[in-house]
């Protein structure tokens, strides 16, 4: 089957990979560059990382991002796992629609409608509103991963457990849950990653003093391009990469589920 592909196909694919990776590589390389301009290589330095760790605003933003990420991932995992199981087991109409639409529509629509919603309800914009918003869009991703895991599960095991006298709850807790646990874990890590990375929805639901890392990066690059941004970008990429490796170890194939 492995026919030789024509050279131009390889060239096109290679170009596509270069297109995908060159920008990221440049960001990483320039984060170690001893020059204020992102123009040419001058020499190696860790100054930008040093500056970063002395930047109070950045540290506060990093802490906010972590808190928001952990809390929203936990909540989204709970709701999303329930939704994923329910969507696999029962023929539902409204739930799949509500779970999948937030993923499908442009983020800005969800951002502005939540902004109106929180302001009308007199909810002060800040960490709480950001977390509530993040949970809403992360539920869908967790649900999809968990549902995919349920679909790959052997149903006869649950039936066997029931035949042997297990109550539905016991069958769920002792048979279903351990089997779909990798999916739930992968979904949770994915939710954490999405929350840490989210910019658009956070932008509309954040208030004074609740800046996150993406918001901080945004305000920095709106003013000027500085290598400090390269440094924080590199660190964030490393963090995301670690999380992705973790997800794929926990549940191979989960990343492609979406």
């Amino acid at each position: 089957m492995a026919k030789r592909q024509s050279w131009w196909l390889w060239a096109a694919a290679a170009l596509a990979y270069v297109f995908l990776y060159l920008p990221l590589v440049i960001v990483v390389v320039y984060s170690f560059n001893d020059s204020k301009l992102n123009a040419e290589w001058v020499g190696f330095t860790l100054d930008w990382y040093h500056k970063l760790f002395n930047n109070r605003e950045m540290l506060v933003a990093a802490r906010n991002s972590m808190v928001i990420g952990v809390v929203s991932a936990l909540a989204a995992t709970f709701f999303g796992a329930l939704a994923g199981i329910a969507m696999h087991r029962y023929k539902l109409r409204l739930l799949p629609f509500l779970v999948l639409t937030p993923i499908a529509i442009p983020e800005i629509l969800m951002g502005v409608s939540l902004l109106i919603f929180f302001v009308l309800l007199n909810v002060t914009l800040g960490m709480t509103s950001i977390i509530l918003a993040h949970v809403a869009f992360c539920i869908g991703f967790v649900a999809i991963v968990v549902r995919a895991r349920m679909q790959g599960m052997d149903n006869s095991l649950v039936e066997a457990a029931r035949d042997l006298g297990a109550t539905p709850w016991q069958a769920f807790r002792l048979v279903t849950l351990p089997q779909i646990m990798p999916g739930i874990l992968a979904g949770g890590l994915m939710a954490f990653t999405l929350s840490i990375d989210d910019f658009v929805i956070t932008f509309f639901t954040a208030g004074v003093g609740s800046s996150t890392l993406p918001l901080q990066i945004y305000s920095m690059i709106k003013i000027a391009v500085t290598p400090e941004v390269n440094a924080i970008s590199t660190l964030l990429m490393v963090l995301t990469l670690c999380l992705i490796v973790l997800v794929s170890k926990v549940s191979p194939g989960a990343l492609r589920a979406e």
């Binding site: 960001v27 890392l213 990066i217 964030l236």
Partner: peptide, 22 residues
Amino acid sequence: LLLVILPFWSNFLIRIYAWMIL
């Protein structure tokens, strides 16, 4: 395939910022 998906998982703003440099 993983190599195609990986950049998608890096922060969205970073990817825009990379093009500011380029």
